[in-house]
């Protein structure tokens, strides 16, 4: 859950900058982000996780090697957050970009007409106004983030799934433990859905 939350949060931050960059950035930023979202969204997550993890680890160790240090063992949870967050960021970028485009242009124009600069407009008008359009997509992403932590098991540091496997392996009652794990995922999803709906209701308070 901690990994999922971290990855989701990192994804949100990337998504926010990504969406703004895609919509208002220069040509280079736009092309770069387009490449990022297209590739990340078209390659299967599992493959991507493996690539980013091993490439990332190699890269870090290469950099460290340059400074003459010994290679380090990469912290599992932290790596998980970075890897999943990188993937989530691509989806967040698209969700937020779409939501910003759904904000009526007149709202942004009014902000400019009353003397708001681009940053102030973004902070006071564009971002809060796009929330109601973004929350459904973002809550989906959160569910995916939770479930994707299971994929991290292949790297040997999954959360629930990994522990379940160990527990199941130790006691040999696979079915019970995986059923229990499934139920836990389900409960977490249901709670998330409930919270997302309340958030959405609040964000939509100005929409008739």
């Amino acid at each position: 859950m901690f990994i999922a939350f971290g990855a989701f949060a990192l994804g949100l931050v990337i998504g926010m900058f990504g969406a703004v960059g895609k919509l208002y950035g220069g040509a280079v930023a736009r092309e770069g982000l387009e490449l990022y979202t297209t590739i990340v969204r078209s390659v299967p997550e599992l493959v991507l996780i493996l690539i980013v993890y091993f490439a990332g680890a190699d890269l870090i160790n290469a950099v460290i090697g340059l400074f003459g240090q010994d290679p380090i063992e990469i912290n599992g949870a932290l790596a998980g957050i970075w890897v999943l967050g990188f993937v989530q960021g691509a989806y967040s970028t698209e969700v937020i970009r779409g939501a910003i485009l759904a904000v009526p242009q007149g709202q942004i124009e009014a902000a400019r007409a009353y003397g708001m600069g681009s940053f102030l407009t973004l902070r006071r008008v564009t971002l809060p106004a796009m929330l109601p359009y973004a929350i459904p997509g973002l809550s989906n992403l959160w569910l995916i983030a939770m479930k994707d932590t299971a994929l991290l098991a292949v790297l040997g540091f999954g959360e629930l799934t990994q522990i379940t496997r160990q527990a199941a392996g130790a006691t040999k009652s696979y079915f019970t433990f995986f059923l229990a794990a499934g139920c836990l995922y389900l409960i977490a999803s249901l709670v998330s859905n409930f919270l997302a709906r309340r958030l959405e209701r609040r964000a939509r308070r100005g929409i008739a």
Partner: peptide, 23 residues
């Protein structure tokens, strides 16, 4: 300068353009 001017040249639009997420 332009921000300053705009903030004192108040515009009223055909479609109102009130900020929908605010009272």
């Amino acid at each position: 300068q332009i921000r300053q001017l705009r903030s004192r040249l108040a515009m009223v639009f055909q479609n109102f353009n009130l900020w929908q997420h605010r009272t």
